[in-house]
Structures are given as structure tokens and as C-alpha cells.
Design a protein around this nucleic acid. Structure first.
Length: 618
RNA sequence: GCUCUCGUAGCUCAGUGGAUUAGAGCGCUUGCUUGCGGAGCAAGAGGUCGCAGGUUCGAAUCCUGCCGGGAGCACCA
């Protein structure tokens, strides 16, 4: 496998020996001079225009000061003095170009040409695998895309799905076995409400297109809510009508519950209409689910769990007193301060709740899919609910409960307030995606006359969705988003298209170059004075593997989104300052072409992890 | 009442103990076309990092309190 050849550029291999050697020399120095040396932490050198590793002596100087040793001087000065002494002690080291003591830091510099060549070679050898983490033993499940059926997919669902998919890609690329799971809500009063109005007023009137039909169902829901909701002022006649409708709806619910064949069939068919639309949208976002869980499929199993929890004295059955089945979570955990509180796991009428079903779902994840770590990408407002679920799983005895993690993200609202499916106050993802394509096409009409008409639509979709996806991923998880279509579909500055454009430019250079020459060129490259733009670009490229690791470990796609921009930014600057194809020296030109190729590859890998396509032209 | 979360430039956001002047985008100002794609590049203006204490050699970053915004807290999902 390719993965085992990939290593972290920063931390390991090539310069590990040198680092160890210098570390030993520092320790020898400390012992010989009786210096209270603090732990050595190495980091890359910032602002230098060269590469290497550095460590500071602030903590050591502080230790010395506390012991009252040496001259009385501010810590930074003492640190600088120690750094200078250490530097004098070390002398020269094989493979290291020079060592400096600056502002309390010891800076150890690599030979520029060696380092540059190594980074570029590594990227070109690994290709699409560049940055992949070492294979891990844990299996991770990421659960996202949990819209309710018979509603339509809006931009809030889009944030959830985009975030979940990026996270899944990151975790997978970091080396974990990753399972993607969707959990549509296909049960409950909302679903029944649509069944009722469909049968009552609209049977057989559904439009043909997949999206049209999905959106039509959402409109029925709005209309039904208006018919069924008590108004502030209503006549006796209106009240009677409303109560009649509500009785009919209850009847539909009863029939569904009792397993009435007609109602079940209607439920099955309409549910499928919604799922068809969902699958279309996931396809647009290039999401391939591994597992589909449905609320309706965990409903029955969850009832058995209630009995088990009562038997184990985790749950309290208050039904004999006319109550529900509850779990006094804090009490059972022995907590004195209220934290998880008490919640209901079975209604007094014996029907299950959201929490009950999540318990059954978790059991399924653990036992059937052998999940070690379970990530729930769910709106932050459900934080309490999920903490309760995890706490009950722990009481129940699942060790995996410790590795359940709620990735709560801020909700998406509109300038006029929260979205509401009931009132139809939503911005549909499909509408935004269509608008995105429209806007890109109009830009292309003036800027990209050379692109054939039959390719434009596809590229427009890649760029339009790239803009939307990037706008969702470039803010951190916990931030709320007030959706503004002009911001979401901006093409200038810190946006998806900006990054895609860097990729297109790199591609354009490579297309024009005689690609055979640079691929055949020998490894004696970068033996010339690199410009600061080349140095900065190589620096950014080299950071990709550690960025993958950080973004995956912290469950933060934003980290990768920020990186992708910084990388593209470095490339744009390089592109402007260095004309690759007009480079006179053949060797330098080949080196630069290899660098362009490495940059293109790294941008491609970064965009891929974000779920954004990289078009060859735009 | 309890819990969570946020408060950094006009706006939207990064940075969450250690290095040059706290960064970026948008907006504003100014440059860049006989040069690999201008969806770009270069530069300028713009900041008491909510307030007050504390810990530390060192705090936007950690702790405490306060102020201000948002969210959640028993039979919805």
C-alpha cells in the first residue's frame, strides 16, 4: 500500500537524526553547566524564509531565575544568553546549513535545496495519497444528513451534510476505517400531517420531477399546518372545521400505528418520493452513504430496550401511577449537581421518543457495525439530548459510550429569523444550487469564451457548489450562520472559486509546458537561489499532512478550509511573481514545473477533502 | 434558576499560553494590460482582542467575577 510510504514531513525521517543529535548536545551542555533545562519542544521556524526547527529557552531561563542562579535579568534576555551559549557549544552539524540564536530561540536551518527537493519529490511520488495518515485500528462512524422525510432539503440540512461529509473524508484520510451513516426521520406527527392532507385534498396530483415532487410535499406540509393550527381569532365555523381536520389526522395516525395496509402503503410511497430527492441531493454533493438508518426501523427495537433498562433498574417505570418511563440520569450516575437531569424514554401511552430511538440506534451501531468511535453531526441545540443519550448508554454498560461525540454546529438562520418548515420560511438547497450555476454561467459568458458550451454547465456546477460548500466550511463548527446568498455565492477573495482558480492556473502552466521534460528531469533540482514566493509555496505544501491530522483530530473541517485558502494564496502570489515558462535556465525551469505540479496536486487533495471539485478550466 | 456557547478592524471571521508590527476576506483608498488565465497580484488606511481582577518570567489565549448576545433544560425532533 502507498500509505505506509507516506510520512509526516515535519516531524520525522530525514532530519530526525540531526534533531536528536542537537538535542543530545543541548542536554550535555545543560549537565556540564548545571542548567535547569526544561523539556525541549521543537517547532518550525516562522518568518525565516528558510526551513528548519527551533526550540526556545524561556522556560529554562525561568527555571534558572526561580533558583536564583546567574545574573538578575529579564527572562527573555537570559533565554537569549542560554541560546547563544548552546549555539557556541554545538558547532557545526552534518546536513545542517547553519544554527542561530535569536530572541531566546535556537534556530536550526536545513539546506534549502535539499528540503525543497524533498517536499516536491514526496508530493509527486505520493500523488493523490499525499498527506494520508498512517492506518489506525479504530472504526469511526460519522452520522449526518438526517432530514425528516416529507420536508424539503434546506440550507440548514446542507450545512449538516457538507460538514459531515468533509469530516468523514478527513477522518478517513487521516487513516481511520470510516462508515458514513444517514438517519432520516420518517416517523412522527409531521409525516402523518402530510399523509393526511395528501389523501384529503391532493391525491394523485403530485408533479413528476424528483425535486418538484419533494418540494411539493413540503408545500403541503405548510398548507396543512395552516389548516390545523389554532388561530388567534376564528369563527365558530372555522373552529369546527379545524377540529374536524385534526380528528381526521389523528385517525390517520391511529391507522398507521395499527398497521393499516392502505395507510402504510401511502406512507411507504410518499417516503420514497422524499428519499429519492435526498439521494439526488447527496449525489450533487458527492456524498456516498454506507449505511441508511431509519427512525421507523429502530422504533420497535427501542421498546425492548425500555424493558431492559427497567429490569436493570436504570429506568424508572412510573406507568402504574399514570406516568411515563423515565431515567433519572444524574441520580443513577451519582451526581449531586444537576447535569443530565431526568428524561422520559417512553410516553405514558407506550410510544417511543427521540431519545428511545437513539438508544436503539447506538446499540445497532456498536453491535452490528462494530463502531469504536461514533460522531454525531447534529445541530448544537440538540446537545442536551445527545449528552443524555450518551450518559444512558454509559449506565447501560457500553464502553463505546465514552467515544460517542456530538459534533454540534451552529444553526443556519435567515436575516428575517429562524427557518421554519411549518411556515414554509426556508431557503431550499436546490434553489441556491440552481442560482449558483446561473451566476457562474453569466460570469463564464464574459470570462471564459473558450470553454465549449457542452462543458459549461458541469464546470458551472463545480464552481457554484464549490462557492457554497466553501462558505459553509470556512466558519468554525460552533458559529451560527445567518444565510446570505450573496455571501455564500461570492467568487472573489476567500472563497471556493479562488482556490479552484489557483488549481486552474497551475493546470494551465502544465498544459503549456512540455510535460515530458520535467518528469524526466533528474533530482538535482532547486540548486539555485529560490525566490521568497517559491519558499513560501513549498512551506505551505509541506504543511498539508499535519493539517490533515489536526483537522481530523479536532473534528474541524474549517482547519482544512483555511489551509486550502492559504495554499492557494501562496500559489497565486508565486504565479504572479515568477514566470515559470519564461525561465531561461532549463534546470531551474524544470524545478519550477515540478513545484507547480506539486502545488496543483496538493490543492487538489485539499479540495477533495472538503468535498469541492477541482475543474481543469473555469 | 441551572447548563452550554459567543464577545478580536466598519462588517464576516481566523488566531486560544511564548519570536518580526495581533492576521485574513469583504468594504474603502492607491497602483499593476505590448508577459504561464485579472475569479488574480502589490500596497495603504482601519484594533483599549467586552470590562475588572488574578495566575505566570510572559495572557487575545488559562482562572474568577461582572456586563452584553444566542441556545438548551420531562412525555417534540
Amino acid at each position: 500500500m502507498v500509505t505506509c510510504q507516506v510520512y509526516n514531513l515535519r516531524e520525522k525521517t530525514m532530519f530526525q537524526k540531526e534533531q536528536q543529535l542537537i538535542e543530545d548536545k543541548i542536554k550535555d551542555f545543560a549537565t556540564a553547566n548545571d542548567v535547569a533545562l526544561a523539556e525541549l519542544k521543537w517547532q518550525p521556524i516562522p518568518f525565516s524564509g528558510e526551513w528548519g526547527f527551533a526550540t526556545s529557552f524561556f522556560q529554562t531561563a525561568a527555571n534558572e531565575a526561580k533558583l536564583g542562579k546567574g545574573e538578575k535579568a529579564p527572562v527573555p534576555q537570559k533565554a537569549q544568553a542560554i541560546a547563544e551559549q548552546v549555539r557556541a557549544q554545538i558547532g557545526s552539524v552534518e546536513g545542517i546549513s547553519h544554527i542561530e540564536a535569536v530572541k531566546g530561540y535556537l534556530n536550526v536551518y536545513f539546506k534549502t535545496s535539499d528540503y525543497a527537493r524533498r517536499v516536491v519529490d514526496e508530493v509527486l511520488n505520493a500523488g493523490t495519497e499525499f498527506g494520508r495518515g498512517q492506518k489506525k485500528s479504530e472504526t469511526v462512524m460519522v452520522e449526518y444528513a438526517q432530514p425528516n422525510t416529507l420536508h424539503s432539503f434546506h440550507i440548514g440540512h446542507a450545512r449538516n451534510t457538507i460538514l459531515g461529509e468533509a469530516l468523514a473524508r478527513l477522518v478517513e484520510f487521516a487513516g481511520y476505517k470510516t462508515i458514513r451513516a444517514s438517519y432520516p426521520g420518517d416517523l412522527g406527527l409531521g409525516v402523518i400531517t402530510v399523509l393526511w392532507i395528501y389523501e384529503r385534498f391532493y391525491k394523485g396530483q403530485e408533479p413528476a420531477g424528483v425535486h418538484e415532487r419533494g418540494q411539493w410535499l413540503a408545500k403541503l406540509y405548510v398548507e396543512a399546518t395552516a389548516l390545523l393550527e389554532k388561530k388567534e381569532v376564528e369563527t365558530a365555523e372555522e373552529t369546527a372545521k379545524r377540529e374536524e381536520y385534526d380528528a381526521e389526522r389523528r385517525e390517520v395516525y391511529h391507522k398507521w400505528d395499527a398497521g393499516d395496509a392502505d395507510v402504510r402503503e401511502l406512507w411507504r410511497v410518499t417516503r420514497e418520493w422524499s428519499l429519492e430527492e435526498l439521494r439526488e441531493i447527496l449525489k450533487m454533493l458527492d456524498v456516498k452513504m454506507d449505511v441508511w438508518f431509519y427512525e421507523s426501523e429502530v422504533d420497535e427495537p427501542s421498546k425492548a430496550i425500555v424493558d431492559e433498562l427497567i429490569a436493570k433498574d436504570i429506568a424508572t417505570d412510573e406507568r402504574p401511577e399514570g406516568g411515563a418511563v423515565i431515567v433519572k440520569i444524574d441520580e443513577k450516575l451519582g451526581l449531586t449537581k444537576e447535569k443530565y437531569r431526568t428524561n422520559v424514554i417512553l410516553r405514558r401511552d407506550g410510544t417511543t421518543l427521540y431519545l428511545t430511538k437513539d438508544l436503539a440506534l447506538a446499540k445497532e451501531k456498536f453491535e452490528k457495525y462494530h463502531v469504536d468511535r461514533s460522531i454525531y453531526v447534529v445541530d448544537v441545540r440538540q446537545s442536551m439530548h445527545l449528552q443524555q443519550a450518551f450518559a444512558i448508554l454509559k449506565l447501560w454498560g457500553f464502553p463505546q459510550a465514552e467515544k460517542c461525540y456530538h459534533l454540534g454546529y451552529g444553526f443556519v438562520s435567515l436575516p428575517e429569523g429562524a427557518m421554519s418548515a411549518r411556515r414554509g420560511r426556508v431557503v431550499l438547497f436546490k434553489d441556491v444550487a440552481d442560482e449558483a450555476v446561473k451566476r457562474v454561467l453569466s460570469v463564464e459568458a464574459e470570462k471564459s469564451a473558450d470553454i465549449p458550451a457542452n462543458e459549461r454547465e458541469k464546470i458551472a456546477s463545480q464552481i457554484g457548489l464549490g462557492a457554497l460548500v466553501y462558505s459553509m466550511l470556512s466558519v468554525d463548527n460552533n458559529k451560527d450562520i445567518v444565510f446570505d446568498i450573496n455571501e455564500a455565492l461570492a467568487f472573489d477573495g476567500r472563497t471556493g472559486p479562488y482556490i479552484q482558480n489557483a488549481y486552474v492556473r497551475a493546470n494551465s502552466i502544465l498544459k503549456r509546458a512540455d510535460t515530458q521534460t520535467f518528469k524526466r528531469s533528474n533530482v538535482q533540482t532547486f540548486n539555485y537561489e529560490l525566490t521568497k514566493h517559491e519558499i513560501e509555496l513549498i512551506e505551505q505544501i509541506s504543511r498539508f499532512p499535519q493539517t490533515v491530522e489536526q483537522a481530523a483530530n479536532e473534528y474541524r473541517p474549517m482547519v482544512m478550509a483555511a489551509y486550502a485558502y492559504d495554499l492557494a494564496n501562496s500559489f497565486h502570489s508565486f504565479y504572479h511573481a515568477v514566470n515559470v515558462l519564461q525561465t531561461d535556465n532549463e534546470n531551474t525551469k524544470n524545478a519550477r514545473l515540478r513545484l507547480v505540479s506539486a502545488a496543483k496536486q496538493t490543492i487538489e487533495n485539499a479540495l477533495r477533502l472538503l468535498g469541492i471539485q477541482a475543474p481543469d478550466v473555469m
